[in-house]
Each structure stands twice: as C-alpha cells, then as structure tokens.
C-alpha cells in the first residue's frame, strides 16, 4: 500500500473532499453509454461486477478478511430478487433489490458470526464451504430454484413505474449505473468514517485494536454483513438484467474471479474495484471464448505479476506514473 494512497483515504487527518479524478469512472461509464450502444449488455455486466468488487474491497481491502466465497452473497441476492419476481406479485425492481440486499445482508451476518471466530486458512475454507453449501441447496431445491435449468419467469416492472427494461439494455445499463453510484457513495462515506478507520486498524494490527478496547469481532461482522448486502445488490441487478438466475452465480467462479479483478485493479483503494472488473471483463469478452487456455494462463501470470511487482494493482501503477508526471 503506498503511503499516499492510504493517507488520502481514511482517517482523522485525511481529506474527504472529492477530487476531480473520482468522477472519471462515472464520466467514462456515461461516455460508454453513448459511444458503444451495441455493447451495453457487456457494459451492464461490468457495472455489476464493479459493484461486486466494491463490496469485496470493503472486507478484503479494508477489513483484511480473505474470502473465496463471496459468490454466496451475489447468489443469495440473485435468487431472492428472482424469487420475489417469479413467485410474488411484487414486480417493482427497487423493492426486489431491497429484498435481495436485506436477505444477503442477513446471510452475511449469520455466516460472518461463525467465520470470523476463526483465523487464516480456516477463514478461507469456511467462506468456500458456505458458498458450496448454498450451491448445494440451490441445486437440490430445484422445485423453487429451477436447478440446473435456472429460475425463469421473473417479472420486473418498469423502474419507478416509468422506465421499462428495453431489448437494447439501455434502461438496464443506466439502472446499474445508478445503483452503483449510490453504493459508491455509501462505501466512500463508510471508509472515511471512524468505523472505516477502525477497520483499517484491525487489518493492520488486530491485537492492538483489542488493546485499545475496540470490539474487533463485531466490527468485522458488521463490515462483513454490509459487504454481503452490497454483493446481494449486485446479484439482484444480475437477475433483473437477465431475467434469469442460473446456478453459476453461487459457484466458485464468481468468487475467485472477483478476487482476481479486485487485486488486478488494486485492493483497499475503492477505485481499484472500478478498474479491475472493467479491464478483466473486456479482455475476457475478447479472449476467453476463442482461447480459453491462454485466458487462464494470462490471468495466472497477471496475478503472479501483480503479487510480485505491483501489490497496489493497476491503480497503484497509475498513481505512481501520475506522480512522476506531476513532478518533472
């Protein structure tokens, strides 16, 4: 973590005012909407994974909790939004979204209470195990989840009763962008709050936080639950955009990939969660279908490279270049 990145983020002495470059992701997203109307489904997918990566950044980057099972919450959100849309008369997308957020947050709280009692490899194993349990459940309860065929017949009404989800994905894209904007604002506030600063403290030195009387366990459970809730929102968006939920939302793939995306982008800096998924998914769209072997090889080597040379990810590289540039 570079000194600059850290001190500009959190803390009692830090600056909370908005910088111009914080608007860049949103300007790019709006530019994309107008410039690439044919790629809006890819665009929506990127926005959803940015949201998912942002939720992960909260626990992994700020809380220091290493998880390989975050798809548990993406999947919970996706299925709960799907259940509401398919089995209840409620077709309002915002209510479906809130239902998904609540459900995922609750699952996050319950599993977090168990997982965060342990440490190290056991934490990782438990996150994997909970995601695997949910996948098993969804698979076996095919009467309500549709099993391997997926859950379909999900009703999603126009947003605010006015903006209908269209075939070109324009409404969907802007809807995702709006939800992301709200989540980004929430996460940014949280990171700059005393709570966020204490999370950084726990990540850096948990035993010291115990010694100053901080309720370390409950702080982590809270961060984990909030993160799960945001991941649930990402899941709900996925359901509403595709009007279909498949078992793969609960699989290892989203869990592993979102970690890779966040690390590539840069962990613990908010904006790494924007850059990572964008780069990853664009490359995946271009390469993964034709050359799956080289795609995996590329991810692997990319990860090793980041671990070795660029622990702050792409964001770190950019800020390094920007600093050198700004100081001739």
């Amino acid at each position: 973590m570079t000194a600059e990145a850290r001190s500009a983020q959190a803390g009692y002495a830090g600056a909370t005012r908005y910088r111009w470059y914080e608007a860049v992701p949103f300007i790019v997203a709006i530019g994309f909407y107008f410039a690439m109307p044919d790629y809006l489904s890819l665009g929506s997918r990127i926005l959803i994974f940015v949201l998912f990566a942002l939720s992960l950044d909260l626990v992994l980057g700020f809380g220091g909790i290493v998880t390989l099972g975050h798809s548990a919450f993406l999947g919970t959100g996706a299925y709960v939004a799907g259940f509401i849309g398919a089995y209840s008369p409620v077709s309002d997308p915002i209510i479906q979204l809130l239902g998904a957020v609540l459900a995922a947050g609750l699952v996050g709280f319950l599993t977090g209470c168990i997982i965060l009692r342990t440490k190290g490899l056991t934490v990782i194993m438990l996150t994997l195990a909970f995601a695997a349990i949910l996948l098993e459940l969804a698979n076996k309860a095919s009467a309500i989840t549709g099993g391997t065929d997926g859950l379909s017949g999900i009703q999603v009404a126009p947003i605010f009763g006015r903006f209908e989800f269209d075939l070109y994905g324009q409404t969907g894209y802007l809807y995702c962008l709006g939800v992301l904007l709200v989540a980004w604002y929430l996460v940014r506030r949280l990171v700059h709050s005393p709570f966020g600063t204490s999370l950084t403290g726990i990540r850096d030195n948990a035993s010291r936080m115990h010694a100053i009387g901080a309720p370390v366990y409950w702080r982590l459970v809270a961060a984990y639950s909030i993160s799960a809730a945001i991941a649930g929102a990402a899941g709900a968006l996925l359901t509403q955009i595709n009007q279909l939920v498949g078992l793969d939302v609960l699989g290892f793939e989203p869990s592993g990939e979102v970690v890779v995306m966040l690390i590539l982008g840069g962990v613990g800096q908010i904006y790494g969660a924007f850059l990572g998924p964008a780069v990853f998914l664009v490359l995946q769209d271009a390469l993964a279908k034709q050359f799956p072997e080289f795609w995996y090889l590329g991810i692997g080597i990319g990860l090793l490279f980041v671990v070795w040379y660029a622990p702050t990810g792409l964001i770190g590289l950019i800020s390094r270049v920007a600093r050198r540039w700004g100081r001739p």
Binding site: G256, V259, V260, I263, E293, F294, W295, Y296, L297, I299, G300, I301, G302, L303, L304, V306, V307
Partner: peptide, 12 residues
Amino acid sequence: LFSIGLIYVAIA
C-alpha cells in the same frame, strides 16, 4: 493470491 495465480497457470 500467489497460489491462486499458480493454480490458474497450472490449469491452463
């Protein structure tokens, strides 16, 4: 991360 990187390289 390092070991996940290795896994990806190995499966590729």
